[in-house]
Design a binder for these strands. Structure first.
Lengths: 341, 341
DNA sequence: CTGTTAGCGCCTTCAG
DNA sequence: CTGAAGGCGCTAACAG
């Protein structure tokens, strides 16, 4: 039989309340008593029943998700997944609130973080923007004991507890490997379409992509990056223009959003003169394009997994519990038309 | 405030015990009373607190994992993951027992299932073998109300509740796509190394692989399948022999285990005459070979995910609860040397 | 500083 | 057929 608080109380010769105080690190226990209790705890191999504890506390984990009001399909699906989690709140003892912020706006993000700090939730998940102000705000929240998880885009060397997102450098490297191998033979020129070089994940993807092309496929040349601001219209213009001016383009790596525009631009060429295309995020348009052969491969991060993982980790961190790291690693999914889910 | 049993008892004008009887479909409630209670339940939108219920029942889910005593790295890692889950049993209210059976042996599997039936666990996870006897045994267990999940290899059209594994046809198709594209240009002959064509997952992979090669890469020829029985020694011999007799082989698809032998055979050729290699399961040997450029791509199923998923699903099925299907879909991971975890 | 007592939401005897 | 009372493992007042 698993030992309970009663067992350790009896074994240590104290009352339940004292055991509880020790277990939860609350003050008001003499040093010797505390040690006696701790002795009993480890002697009996006691592990607290989190479910029972939460029941007694009638605890519900209050979490806030700060999401950019970005209307691209990926961010929409991310928001959908958060809504799904809100729907499961009853069963999961969570109370989740969503705060929208304008995209790519560090001070708005800082403002949102500060505002959330006031209500002292148990945890916050947010899509980070990599600036010193944001880092400072994060430090303040950490000081207030709020668990924090960055979502999709990380904030390294900050006080956040965990990052729920993919390794973007590896993603870029993977894209380059696929590109290089798919081009096999066709020596080529490759165009890169990004959202903005101000965002960390886009920068990292480009970095990984360039590195592998240089090292492993030196015959492939990269054109200067097109910044489409994740805007389909702009992306379409930029890509169409590039294809016109560089007819030798044999591949395009789209490392941000705005893929609808890219797809239109590629589609408007004759079928046998279309470049190889590798894009990010499996959404309705990229899925269709993959099926139709307009896009050759899609790298994806599973928004559902990211959200569920963020919640699991926030819970664990809020309770000071360990996480199953392998379970929380967000994979770089590679989709060809053959392994679409 | 979420409604509790007290609320619905009061609202229906009955006692807690009666509410409980209705909730759990137990007998001893007059029809009218039952309807009154059910009315209150749906009127208040009551949802039962599973954690509290489990606490009251001091329930622990008893599960049995039936695993083949197969000494290949993948099966070993699967067993490791089950052991990991056993380690978390305390926190997860599970009691998991492992039963070993000889591999590829339908009657041994049936025997194990029958033996397990006696102890009436809440659920069973097992690596299926696709024969009528096994199907019959599964039907009997289902009759006894035991939840069942097939692991890694499925048993379609049977009474099992769920399959925790990848879509093997899609995996084969994906392998073919990668093979065809990586070969781009080099018209080629491809060898296939399987474990045994008696196992469903191997058959399905081959089926998907052949289909895509025929449809999309008609210039690529497939040699007759090498059956390595997942044995490294035999696999090495077969592959070495094939390479000797068919110097034109430009690619090898290894869809089973026994990759250590395959790797040795390939490695013993001069570097510039090595075929393209696509294999299954990321294990120590395949990982090393991927890093060294001996293997070009690895398709993988995440054993940890499969085990955790099986447990979540068994719990849900044992309680008659729904599952988050997206969360339980086991992905076909594609690893290149660039996105190794 | 320490102990007693009464729940959290649900289930399970045991009476009636 | 129905209800009252006690308990699962833990926490939270409130007394001492």
């Amino acid at each position: 039989m698993k030992p309970t608080v009663h067992d350790i109380a009896r074994s240590a010769g104290v009352s339940l309340a004292t055991v509880d105080r020790v277990l939860n690190g609350r003050p008001g226990v003499r040093h010797v008593t505390r040690e006696r209790v701790e002795g009993a705890i480890s002697a009996l191999g006691y592990v607290r029943d989190v479910a029972a504890a939460n029941l007694a506390k009638s605890r519900t984990y209050s979490f806030v998700f700060i999401l950019p009001m970005n209307d691209n399909p990926f961010m929409i699906s991310l928001a959908d997944e958060v809504r799904g989690a809100i729907g499961r709140s009853g069963a999961e003892r969570t109370g989740i609130r969503v705060v929208d912020v304008p995209p790519f706006d560090p001070s708005a993000l800082v403002g949102a973080l500060e505002a959330v700090l006031v209500e002292k939730p148990a945890g916050i998940a947010f899509v980070a923007i990599d600036t010193p102000e944001v880092r400072d705000a994060v430090a303040r929240l950490a000081g207030a004991g709020i668990a924090m998880v960055t979502l999709v885009s990380d904030l390294p060397d900050s006080a956040r507890d965990h990052y729920a997102g993919i390794d973007n450098i590896a993603a870029g490297r993977t894209a380059a490997s696929l590109m290089g191998r798919f081009l096999a033979g066709r020596s080529g020129t490759v165009a890169v379409l990004a959202g903005s070089m101000l965002v960390r994940d886009h920068r990292e993807r480009l970095e990984g992509f360039s590195a592998v092309l240089q090292d492993t496929f030196p015959d492939v040349r990269i054109l200067s990056v097109l910044e489409g601001r994740d805007d389909p219209e702009l992306a379409e213009m930029l890509v169409a223009d590039a294809l016109r001016r560089h007819p030798e383009i044999s591949g395009i790596y789209s490392l941000g959003a705005g893929n609808r525009g890219l797809i239109r631009a590629v589609q408007s060429r004759e079928a046998d003169r279309r470049p190889l295309v590798i894009a990010h995020e499996l959404t309705a348009p990229t899925r269709a394009a993959l099926t139709d052969g307009i896009i050759d491969a899609v790298l994806n991060q599973d928004a559902g997994h990211e959200v569920r993982s963020a919640i699991r980790v926030l819970k664990a961190k809020a309770d000071g519990l360990p996480v199953i790291t392998a379970q929380e690693r967000i994979r770089i999914d590679i989709f060809l038309k053959d392994n679409l889910p």
